[in-house]
Amino acid sequence: MITIDNNYLKEQIASHLGKQLLYSEETYGMLCVETTKESIISLLQFLKEHSELQMSFLTTMCGIHYPDHKGKELGVTYHLHSLVNNIRVRVKIFFSEHDCVVPTATTLFDTANWMEREAFDFYGIKFEGHPNLKRILNVEHMNYHPLRKEYPLEDATRTDKDDHFFGR
């Protein structure tokens, strides 16, 4: 009988990914691994179809933007959950904002459809092979991706406010 815990999960992921496992860490009880966008689908498929782990539930996925990480500005975070073993994992990929084409996960999870559309809408991440990749929450004629860090929440042209004293 194998105990399915974060260590076992990490071993399995490491043996599957090999050198493609760029980083792994356990924070707040959840294992977090980073891989490349080339091997993300094979990893998701491996976790989904693994006979012991059975991580077949895609809880959520979302984009993230780190403008200072050169060459790895944009990222996608997947949260997988095994309802059988009650174990979760967070898988991340990072890539350049000039080459933000990622293979779609809709082939594995139907639920990834809208999640990917959301990540496309807010971060401009293009999911290759997505059946219907268009904006989902914002209007279609919008010409930018609002959750990227270069779009400040407040009007950047405002000069009447000086937030300097409040550490902003």
């Binding site: 924070t27 707040y28 959840m30 977090c32 809880t59 959520t60 979302c62 975070t77 949260h79 979760r88 967070r90």
Partner: peptide, 17 residues
């Protein structure tokens, strides 16, 4: 740090990443 926490909302798993 990074946290994912979820609660059972009125209509399902409400998660905060």
């Amino acid at each position: 740090g990074e946290v994912y926490h979820s609660v059972e909302g009125g209509n399902g798993e409400l998660g905060y990443y």
